[in-house]
Design a protein around this nucleic acid. Structure first.
Lengths: 160, 160
DNA sequence: CGAAGTCGTCAAGTATCTTGACTATATGGA
DNA sequence: TCCATATAGTCAAGATACTTGACGACTTCG
């Protein structure tokens, strides 16, 4: 009749790359939704990726650029947006007239605190879904993978 | 203190979301680089995400839209690009004058074949890095996580 | 001091999405 | 049969997240 082929739910990929991608996307979506619900509507994935490199103590913009995998202009544009949202602030580096120090505002620190809480909530749900043992194995495998990654240490040697 | 803060390699996050994101990005980068080296310079992450939903038999564009997590216009724009690159082709659906059938060209099928080969190579390197047992545990955890995901089954019921 | 490198910014362009509006075709009654 | 409505796809415009190139301000060092 009319349902035939299209209906047989074309099997999705099942390799490690696809699985990681799907899992990562699912986590991001869940986290971003919770952050928006918590009142941090400015939160996006790209901004999160950058904030992950900014410690609570702040960081020099140039150091942030080195640690991000993106261009310095991209970092700057993201910072422009975050600064406009009042999440971070840029102050001149007293020790280097060229430099800027990027730090969190009160609003930014509040968001970090909520983010930490949400991460724990999501993690708790994950443990419920797959069990403590599988979850521990997952984290262990991901950490080991990262530790053995090529260029993990000499990443900063890139010239740009 | 004088050299202080910036130098102590601001500890990166270590939660499941960050780990998944990093691992996913690393895999994507490795795969895309290998695809480009294999002569498929048109390959990008966004296009890969869409191609993952197109079986070798082809698929109706509307069905592809249903299965993708993005808008129909985004799907169309990605298909426009892939069609311009000669990777896929769109033919009118003989059973529905409104529909289009999206299928691979010879070039697209060649890319799929190379992609499969590259995936196996990457997987082999991963197993070498973390061991067969950890790798198996990783896949198991990711599969179990996906199977237990909310909305995994009723995703297609969204209205758009 | 002056050459050269670093730090940040400005400008312009590309890729990947979004929402809104629209055309063409199909379907299911009255 | 004819029309109301739903579905399939397209067109247009705008937002976000990047890119490369060019540049000015500052620091370092011979």
């Amino acid at each position: 009749m009319v349902k035939e082929l299209d209906e047989k739910t074309t099997a999705l990929p099942d390799h490690i790359g696809w699985r990681l991608w799907q899992a990562s996307r699912a986590w991001q979506a869940e986290f971003a939704a919770a952050m928006r619900d918590a009142g941090h509507g400015w939160f996006t994935e790209a901004r999160a990726g950058l904030l992950g490199h900014i410690s609570r103590d702040g960081i020099r913009q140039s150091a942030l650029i080195d640690r991000s995998a993106i261009s310095k202009q991209a970092v700057q544009q993201l910072l422009d947006g975050l600064e406009a949202e009042g999440v971070v602030q840029r102050l001149p580096d007293p020790r280097d007239g060229r430099g800027k120090l990027v730090g969190y505002t009160r609003k930014g620190l509040d968001a970090l605190r909520d983010g930490d809480r949400i991460k724990l909530q999501i993690e708790r749900r994950y443990v419920e879904r797959i069990g403590q043992q599988r979850f521990a194995a997952l984290m262990d495998a991901l950490r080991t993978l990262d530790a053995g990654a090529p260029d993990a240490t000499d990443k900063d040697t890139e010239v740009q």
